[in-house]
Design a protein around this nucleic acid. Structure first.
Lengths: 192, 192, 192, 192
DNA sequence: AATGAATGAGCTTTCATTCAT
DNA sequence: AATGAATGAAAGCTCATTCAT
């Protein structure tokens, strides 16, 4: 019986994620979310006192799903390179498979609407990976740069790759692009 | 008889850029823009029939200024490496010097509001630079990848660097970060 | 638990009719209607999603009340002439007693705003009367003319009579005018 | 050279009539009228200090043209009956040939916007005809009714006939309808 | 006379949020 | 917990009108 408790809350959050990604924060009235979730207008505000609360909740939901997916199988890899490579692929593939959610996260991150939140850097939520790279970064020319900054820098091509694949355009060879982008960063870091 | 002709239009566009960057598209009513620009509400709509028109105008204004700044002095450099390095620094410094404008452009690009515009990739408007790099890219492991995709990939750390510097945080050594990020990409591309 | 359910809707429609007739569609802002009805601006749009919806609703309300009044007592009359005469009087008296509503209907019917609605001819909604006259019309010189056209033609003086009585002017003998106008039409039709 | 003086005024009035009839008073902004007339916004207000002035001007323009047309050839008829019959046909045919102008006049007359104007009864502007009918009306059952009221009553079917012809609908036999409607009124008045 | 930029009050409509039931 | 009617502050945009040139 416990699960039922939050059935409605889950329905609301689900509808919110879907609609926000399709139409943006401001293009999505709370009334529409409630309707799509099959609950009343008032119920929505019972669970999320503010529209901003709902946006944040949706954001963290997605963020968590994404982080989980990115970390999948990383620990099973033997070398530092392979761990990072696995993560790299996971990240790109998640973005490509969930373009709406991906763009929602991007939209969220560059929206002044939520600039107040603590800055959530890419991959911050994959602590295992995060720490495992500290050594590599420290030996690169990024040595001395704060770890989260270094991390943001080297993972940034992931975003470019995802956008290139997502956006309708020429027939890209996905795997080549993923591998090549990774190679550039890895070689740039280690010289190998 | 001076350039006063478009004094008001310029005032409106200027106020718009400032306010949009501070408060977002949706957080900025046209009435506020007009007030800040020192004109009446109606005058704003005389020059920009739609709020969206105003947003687009502001975007292209900034985009052009940025592109011009990024290309500055690039042709004077002798080697391929120095040309790209110059561009790299120009780009980061422009972003750092114009954080509001920079974030406005980012906000614009990941807004579902304007997803329909032709995808304007970073630096696309610096054709001289753009073409000069074709050779270098062609010999790297990005060979065969469409040029604009390759370009988006290698320039993506610029975004991360700018954000890291802009965001309030520890005392970063800007120059080291700019150089290090460039070195990673350059070495990644060329092995040098 | 009474009919209070639509108290507010009725209040809005009532205020709308009154104000529209006094000031015209375009001279009556929705905000004024809401204020006069004692509800908030938002409530008005809760019940009538569009101003046009409100106008149409008001129109059909009045139309129905009018049609009901015009048919009153007609069936009790014995002869064709008396039925038509009764209807004639009813129509004029309704217009005279409800000048605002009457002019609202007229305004509605000649407004380009609503030209798209199916043309609702005067009295169309009093089918009993309508059919009872078919015989008379068929034997007159209007024989062969489509019934609704014939009807529009012979009932048109009603409008002139109502307007003459409504408009401030000399002291008209209402009853004489009503009877005389009817006599002309009746004699014109039947020769009696 | 004198005619040129009012070239612009005429252009404005012409555009106004056309646009008002197509789109209604409220659907026609003054700026649109000016543009269609090929003059500036300010010029329009130079000639017509108020939009209402322009509406009135347009109304009287049409009214005069209509009255002239209705009176055409009436004096040449020999009998009272033929004079009225000629007028009847003229009126209907004018309405049918100028449906936009006709509806504009109707719209004008039942608009509360201009309720303040002296009531302009149908045909009032054709004094010759008007007076020639006085005798006939005086001997009918409308005897004793104020002449303009009597006139409004007997001419009202003209409106119904015009509307029936104008409105898209079955194939009406125009001439039969015009004749029949006239016959009813004439017989109603005179018993002939 | 002619222009058209400038005005600002006012319009319809939206929507996050409240609250009595 | 759940409802959905009610709210009212905005928002984007229009347009008759003014006025400096």
């Amino acid at each position: 019986m416990t699960g039922e408790k939050n059935e409605k809350k889950a329905a609301i959050a689900g509808a919110a994620v879907r609609l926000f990604t399709e139409r943006g924060f401001h293009g999505t009235p709370t009334s529409l979310i409630a309707r799509e979730a099959g609950v009343s207008n008032g119920t929505l505000f019972h669970y999320f006192p503010t529209k901003e609360d709902l946006i944040n909740f949706a954001y963290f939901e997605i963020k968590n799903r994404m982080a989980e997916e990115i970390g999948r199988g990383v620990d099973a890899e033997r070398t530092e390179r392979e761990r990072m490579r696995r993560m790299w692929r996971n990240a790109v593939l998640w973005g490509v498979d969930h373009p709406d959610e991906y763009m929602f996260v991007q939209q969220f991150c560059s929206s002044p609407f939520v600039r107040r939140l603590p800055p959530e850097e890419f991959l911050k939520d994959a602590p295992a990976v995060f720490e495992s790279l500290t050594g590599t970064l420290g030996k690169s020319c990024l040595e001395g740069i704060p770890i989260e900054v270094a991390f943001a820098v080297i993972s940034s091509p992931i975003d470019a790759v995802i956008r290139s694949i997502i956006n309708p355009g020429g027939n890209l060879d996905r795997d080549r692009l993923i591998d090549a982008s990774f190679e550039i960063i890895w070689r740039g870091l280690t010289g190998e």
